[in-house]
């Protein structure tokens, strides 16, 4: 059940698309580790690996938004912050309970589904703005 990226998620800005693909690649590895029972240590490592990239990617988008004076910067950044909090809660849950069935479901529903929706809506809007402003 791998490969969460699909062409529908392309926003038309290469740099952002590339980062999104990397994001989904890391989520894929995390989900596989939980499903295939690679163990708590491996899952913790992959949660951290994913978390790092989430932060890097969000930073990168926010920098672009500021540089191009994207009018919806605040709202978009709020969404990023909410996600980071949610992700932090999942990491804390893993620390407490280990790689459970619940974690598998929650990473899929809250991380993957959230990202897909955010990309499809918020990032597309950002990308359209960037293309229009010649960025």
């Amino acid at each position: 059940m791998p490969i969460l990226w699909d062409p529908d998620l392309s926003v038309g800005v290469e740099a952002i698309d590339a980062q999104h693909q990397e994001l989904f690649g890391r989520i894929d590895r995390l989900l596989e580790a939980i499903r295939e029972r690679h163990g708590a240590e491996e899952v913790a490592r992959l949660l951290e690996y994913l978390g790092e990239y989430v932060l890097a990617h969000f930073s990168s988008e926010e920098k672009l938004m500021l540089e191009q004076a994207y009018p919806h910067y605040d709202a978009h950044r709020q969404e990023h912050l909410r996600f980071v909090r949610e992700f932090g809660a999942l990491r804390a849950e893993h620390e407490k309970e280990g790689p459970t069935a619940a974690l598998l479901i929650r990473v899929t529903n809250r991380v993957t589904a959230w990202l897909r929706e955010h990309i499809y809506r918020a990032d597309r809007d950002l990308a359209a703005f960037l293309r229009d402003s010649g960025g």
């Binding site: 309970e97 459970t100 069935a101 619940a102 479901i105």
Partner: peptide, 17 residues
Amino acid sequence: LTFLGEYVATHFSTEER
């Protein structure tokens, strides 16, 4: 299906704890 997934997660957590 999403809602059911969340509830299953909560329920399985309860049982495992």
